[in-house]
Design a binder for these strands. Structure first.
Length: 869
RNA sequence: GGGCUGUUAGCUCAGUUGGUUUAGAGCGCUGCUUUGACAGAGCAGAGGUCGGAGGUUCGACUCCUCCACAGCCCA
């Protein structure tokens, strides 16, 4: 073995081997199943740190479940990402001087498929580089024929159940992608803008002043509204004002929706371009003037302003208002503006004919499941957000004016009659029956929101819609846990829950683990433009995939956003190296093993670590059961570095004889198993080195039995060894700070000589000791003293005499601390309220503390006395 | 504007139902050690009046209220 661990070749080797032997392929069996579905990344995406986090956590769960003997089925897949992919294809066409519409639907889809094939394999390869132990044989893509059919089938079903409808509604319009968006696809960003105060003249010559951030929509005004309770404007109601820059007269109306506190308390009503205004318009039967084109330029309805962009029109209109003396003032104003999640274009509220899912009935299902505890959110605090969203849910706009995706299975007759059916033939037949000529039918050109296929994911990957009772579905559904980011709790998680209950009558998963967003160490979101988003592949090339996995988990405390720092990968790499070298030491011992019997201390150390390892395993397993990945790793990290390397292996030096070594190697093997979910490659390599197992066997598939609970005697053993280790550390500190080089003659004064004597081996091994004595009486000679717990350690050594003065300072400081502590305890014990109200065992504990502290003070005082001699 | 978190060592975080002796860890920092598994290391050390102000309680990092600051989600 080399003295430095080089991950690259090792990782490549094991990845290939696992793949070749299909270690992670699952078939239904009598073993209990543990299944999970991967949140499918965009098919044409590239791996970023968010994927690394998401998939590492799932991989840890999957590998851990295998150790515990489950039949683990982890379904990987990718998402067609309708709008994102289409945007990229359109962009490429544009670069080639072509465009979607002249190309036509069929040719465009061919382009899109070509794009998908070119870029689709990249992320899969990258996930494998990270060593995602998914069942790649079961890879699914949301446009695969069975999944496509599932989408169509559920659309038809919901339509027939009256849960899908078509209607003219105000939706968010993306003027760049030229499509409708769902509420969830709109991202609000703060904008610094201008609030313009505009005069609307009345016939009387008076004028109403209205504050607006969107003066360009003045041209679409059809009324002015005030709050009915607003006395300032009571006499205006029913009068008419002229819309500035036009000669259109509009009524002043009263509506509760007007906020009297905003601006001047008057609202210009533009039903075509604002959702709130739309509702006011509906209530008052106002007409609708639409002045925008689909690309959000001003249309012919805007007269002289036709052809301008929103921004240009805003500037021009402000100028014209000023010139006409109708602009009272402008003031700076900060507000939130909706942007398209995918194109970042400022969205425009737009009235249009779209398909919607009625969400009310679904919301009930999704809320109940979580509130009744059938599905658990981790961390739990997301329940509040989840509930709030579901209680205020609006219907889901599912049609998109795009081509890449699942095409809406609706056909229209020339008079607008709709026929929804799974196939064109069925639609034609239905039309025929209804007395229409099938030849005149045209299919809806739109496709469905990407999430309309994603919400079926846990069902469709197991072919539920094709064969509801198939063995895969029966075995693997519901899945165990969904690991994802909170930002898609509504987009996706809630809707999967709805779909699970509605279509299959069962939850899709039992636990939702929500991890944070990966940020840089300055808390900034990772983004390409900031250049603060490291390329995971480059990181893996530098540090190794195991180290990157450690790095990302070490930066991930449960539930919070995580601050990723490349230094953590370095730390991960160092940890791998440490682990590597500990196995090198075992190998060295194996080569040099002699037939001598183990020393009593080696046996004692072995006994100790046997218990310590069990305690560690129990701790780690408890933490993993609670999805506390970081803490589980941290426990393991310290267990390896401190307990295993610094104490156990050190204690066994210069090396155990073969029989004991074999037992030590079993300890090492258990450690490898515990580590395997976090660092699969190095553990596999070390295990094969240790066991010389054939390539198709894996430490990750070696059963890991439950660790037995600790008996009281075992807990006491751990406690006493921890005591010895702490005392040894303090004595080493004493030696270091007083510059003592040689070995110590150690005398321990104690009231519990048996307890201390049992630990002699540890002191002898870890401190250079010349002699060791345990007694109940104080030492009468001058010596270095350490007062630790109930004992006094007297250390005599060459050169110690000179250090006595320095020791006095240390003891004095300690005495002061002890006295301060004692005073607080005494105050407590003299407080009659405390004695009257505190529980007896609490009082007893405080009294014991007082006794201990008094004894320690006594020791310290005596030591100081002795030093003055 | 509505809702939800958080504020503990230089940084990132633990701290289980209020009472374990001076509130813990990792990293970083300081000093010593180039000792035979590992300098990608070893050994030790320093460092915090638990955001502020009140309150409840015999007792508060822990419970309550208010304030300040930071962040997230939603409109």
């Amino acid at each position: 073995m080399e003295s430095r661990y080089a991950p690259q070749a090792v990782e490549a080797h094991w990845q290939a081997a696992w793949d070749k032997h299909q270690l992670y392929h699952s078939e239904p069996s009598s073993q209990p199943a543990y299944s999970l579905v991967m949140p499918p990344p965009n098919v044409t995406g590239v791996l970023h740190m968010g994927h690394v986090l998401n998939n590492t956590l799932q991989d840890i769960l999957a590998r851990y479940a295998r150790l515990k003997g489950y039949n683990v089925c982890w379904i990987p897949g990718t998402d067609h990402a309708s709008i994102a992919t289409e945007a990229k294809v359109v962009q490429r066409l544009r670069a080639q001087g072509r465009d979607k519409h002249t190309l036509g639907r069929e040719a465009f889809l061919q382009e899109a498929w070509r794009w998908t094939e070119e870029h689709g394999g990249i992320i899969v390869t990258q996930l494998k580089r990270l060593s995602v132990s998914a069942d790649w044989k079961r890879y699914r893509f949301t446009l695969d024929p069975p999944l496509y059919r599932a989408v169509i089938r559920t659309f038809v079903q919901l339509y027939r159940e009256g849960l899908i409808y078509r209607g003219k509604r105000m939706i968010h319009w993306d003027p760049a992608a030229l499509t409708a968006l769902s509420d969830e696809e709109v991202i609000y960003k703060t904008h610094d803008s201008q609030l313009a105060y505009v005069r609307y003249p009345a016939e009387s010559g008076e004028a109403l002043v209205i504050a607006t951030v969107r003066p360009e929509t003045i041209l679409a005004d059809v009324a002015v509204a005030v709050n009915p309770h607003d006395e300032r404007y009571a006499h205006w109601i029913g009068k008419r004002v002229r819309v500035p820059l036009t000669d259109r007269w509009v009524p002043v109306i009263a509506d509760e929706a007007v906020d009297p506190a905003f601006g001047t308390g008057c609202l210009k009503v533009t039903p075509a371009h604002d959702p709130k205004d739309y509702e006011i318009g509906q209530r008052h039967g106002l007409l609708i003037i639409d002045i925008f084109t689909p690309t959000a330029r001003l249309s012919d309805a805007a007269g002289p302003y036709a052809g301008l962009s929103r921004e240009e029109a805003r500037t021009r209109i402000l100028n014209d208002l000023a010139a006409a003396g109708l602009l009272e003032k402008t003031e700076p104003y900060t507000h939130s503006v909706g942007h398209s999640e995918r194109t970042d274009a400022v969205v425009e509220p737009r009235l249009s004919e779209q398909w919607f899912v009625r969400m009310q009935p679904f919301a009930q299902l999704a809320l109940q499941a979580v509130e009744k505890g059938e599905i658990r959110l981790v961390p739990e605090r997301f329940l509040a957000t989840y509930r709030h969203w579901l209680e205020n849910i609006k219907d889901w706009c599912i049609s998109r004016q795009l081509w890449w995706g699942h095409r809406i299975p609706a056909w229209y007759a020339p008079d607008g009659q709709v026929f929804v059916a799974e196939t064109e033939a069925e639609a034609h037949a239905a039309a025929q029956t209804a007395g229409y000529d099938p030849a005149t039918l045209t299919q809806d050109p739109d496709v469905l929101d990407t999430w309309f296929s994603s919400w079926l994911w846990p069902l469709s990957v197991f072919d539920f819609f094709e064969q509801p009772d198939n063995p895969d579905f029966r075995t693997y559904y519901p899945t165990e846990v969904l690991v994802t980011a909170p930002e898609i709790l509504f987009f996706w998680v809630a809707r999967m829950i709805m779909a699970g209950y509605h279509f299959a009558g069962q939850k899709p998963f039992s636990v939702v683990y929500l991890h944070g967003i990966v940020r840089d160490k300055l808390r900034r979101k990772m983004s390409k433009s900031l250049g603060n988003s490291p390329d995971p592949i480059a990181l893996m090339d530098t540090y190794g995939a195991d180290a990157v996995r450690l790095g990302i988990v070490m930066s991930a405390p449960a539930g919070n956003d995580l601050l990723f720092d490349e230094a953590l990968c370095e730390q991960g790499k160092n940890f791998c190296n440490k682990l590597w070298n500990s196995f090198r030491l075992l190998e060295l011992w194996r080569e040099r093993a002699t037939d001598k019997a183990p020393t009593p201390f080696q046996e004692a150390a072995y006994e100790w670590f046997s218990v310590r390892l069990r305690a560690l395993q129990r701790e780690i397993e408890n933490l993993l059961r609670e999805y506390r990945f970081y803490e589980a790793l941290h426990t393991l990290y310290r267990g390896v570095w401190e307990d295993f390397c610094s104490w156990y292996l050190e204690a066994l030096k210069p090396g155990p004889p073969p029989a004991l070594l074999a037992a030590v190697e079993r300890h090492a093997e258990t450690l490898l198993q515990l580590l395997h979910p976090f660092v699969p490659h190095i553990t596999e390599e070390l295990w094969h080195g240790l066991r010389k197992a054939p390539e198709h066997e894996s430490v990750g598939l070696l059963p890991l039995p439950e660790a037995a609970p600790l008996q009281p005697a075992e807990t006491a053993l751990l406690e006493s060894v921890a005591y010895a280790q702490e005392a040894i550390t303090k004595l080493r500190g004493l030696r270091q700070s007083f510059g003592i080089g040689g070995s110590l003659r150690l005398t321990v004064q104690t009231s519990r000589p048996a307890y201390v004597s049992a630990l002699e081996g540890w002191f002898r091994h870890f401190l250079p000791l010349e002699s060791w004595a345990v007694q109940t009486e104080p030492l009468q000679r001058p010596a270095l003293r350490l007062v630790f717990r109930q004992e006094v350690y007297y250390a005599e050594a060459e050169g110690a005499a000179e250090a006595l003065a320095a020791l006095r300072k240390k003891l004095e400081a300690e005495l002061e601390h002890t006295e301060r502590f004692l005073r607080t305890i005494q105050a407590k014990l003299q407080n009659p309220h405390f004695l009257a109200k505190a529980a007896p065992e609490v009082i007893a504990r405080e009294q014991q503390k007082q006794l201990d502290a008094e004894a320690r003070r006594q020791h310290l005082v005596e030591q100081l006395e002795a030093l003055r001699m």
